[in-house]
């Protein structure tokens, strides 16, 4: 299977809520600059794990605001 998966892939609502909460908590006590860096680290870690340039580039396109695309 190739290409970016944009269908629900992380389980139940409860599971999504839990992950959401962890992403919020990741920034607890951080300045905006540090927070931005943590986001960037997370993106790099996940991108490396995915390891598929095509998927990552599709994700970059999907993430961009429509007006800026």
């Amino acid at each position: 299977m190739t290409g970016l998966n944009t269908t629900p892939n992380l389980g139940t609502n409860a599971s999504a809520d839990d992950l959401y909460q962890k992403l919020v908590a990741l920034h607890d006590g951080l300045s905006e600059a540090d927070s931005l860096r943590v986001w960037a680290k997370l993106v790099l870690i996940l991108a490396n794990h995915i390891g598929d340039r095509e998927v990552i580039e599709q994700a970059i396109v999907a993430a961009r605001p429509v007006a800026a695309a």
Binding site: A33, L36, R37, V38, A40, K41, V43, L44, N48
Partner: peptide, 24 residues
């Protein structure tokens, strides 16, 4: 920009501990 600064520093921070970040 602040975002590219954050990305740059994220690479440097990760590179210390993780080989995958060093090529960046």
């Amino acid at each position: 920009s602040t975002a590219s600064q954050a990305l740059r520093d994220a690479v440097l921070e990760l590179a210390r501990d993780h080989a995958f970040a060093r090529p960046f």
